[in-house]
Design a protein around this nucleic acid. Structure first.
Lengths: 191, 191
DNA sequence: AAAGGCACTTAACCTAGATTAAGAAAATTA
DNA sequence: TAATTTTCTTAATCTAGGTTAAGTGCCTTT
């Protein structure tokens, strides 16, 4: 079965016609690793759902330091919510880290779908709620935990990503430098 | 006009009957400063909308250090989203900082309202979206800005709160100790 | 009005994590 | 396959921000 429909069906029930309508408003594309799907400074027009492969969103500070906001692998959505909602230029990049099959949903079509299938409003509300809770927790972790603790939590929560993501990007996600991350990791391994 | 209805009308249009129905499902209460509305470990059953006064949510680390997740003054909602959504015990406290008039909306009634007035689903989706965007930005700020920079940003964004909130709590919100905050503040004033 | 407790300040000292730099290993590309 | 670029490691040094502690002033509560 289709991954994105499976995903939706966890929260709301769509009829077969609604499922077809939904899919007809999306496009599925393949992208090579390193492809930039969204540049900082652009207005974000789409949400991306990952069928396979791996993506990340990040910004660049003072044209030097990258900070990873999120990773997205199979079954996850990714976008620049600020820019998508406000339709103003954002400061996030969205990049493919591993060759990926992506379902693309434009903002226009999303709004059409909200009209046609009001239940979808509920689905995206729930998605957004879960995302909000996750960001609140991550913020509190950054306020209250040491780098070690954040790393351990990341490991237990995102075991799948650790194999795939270059560690400098995990470092960035956790809020430490690659050098410190390396030091920390070898310290933890020695135990 | 009623503040909460005014608030809602910025995003969706309710008929007079719908407005009445909405209000009939809420309760308005007065609370004294220092009142705890929600304790860590409890399951959160309600959202709070602030008509007047000031609230905060925070957690306590290792039974010692408080970390402020959010403030809420007139016109803002506050709750423990994790606990409210999952109906599991949360780890946030919600506390009144200044005598407050609060509109209380129970989860049950919120769900009844979603049935009766499906448009409300849109309203709460938008609220949640805006909140998500704000937390993403705050997280990125914590990853990429120095304490000074976060403080300046806080000042320009929440000028109203600076007068009202004890500075040790602003320090906690920014992720620094009260001692360091005091040092930082006097350094900035000397300029 | 006194007493006790908070909130804030200041200062000395400490440490988690940053910076710089240089080499080794792995992955891309030609 | 070699050449080139990235990623990762290690180590020395540095600093933003933490900790501890002592003192001041301001609310509460009685």
């Amino acid at each position: 079965m289709n991954l994105i429909l499976e995903n939706i069906s966890k929260h709301i029930n769509l009829t077969l016609q609604e499922q077809e309508l939904f899919l007809s408003k999306t496009e599925t594309h393949h992208f090579k690793a390193k492809t930039i799907l969204l540049n900082a400074g652009e207005v974000c027009k789409t949400s991306y759902f990952v069928n396979s492969g791996l993506l990340r969103s990040f910004n660049i500070n003072d044209n030097i330091v990258e900070h990873v906001l999120s990773f997205a692998c199979s079954g996850w959505w990714i976008s620049d919510m600020y820019s998508l909602l406000s339709q103003k230029p954002g400061n996030l990049f969205i990049q493919v880290l591993e060759d990926a099959e992506i379902v693309v949903l434009s903002k226009e079509n999303q709004e059409i779908l909200f009209q046609e299938i009001p239940k979808l409003e509920r689905f995206f509300r729930i998605l957004t709620e879960n995302s909000l809770v996750a960001y609140q927790e991550r913020l509190m972790d950054n306020l209250s935990l040491s780098a070690d603790e954040r790393f351990e939590k990341f490991c237990s929560k995102h075991h799948d990503l650790i194999q795939k993501v270059p560690q400098k990007q995990i470092a960035s996600y956790l809020g430490v430098t690659p050098e410190f991350f390396s030091k920390m990791k070898s310290k933890l391994l020695r135990k």
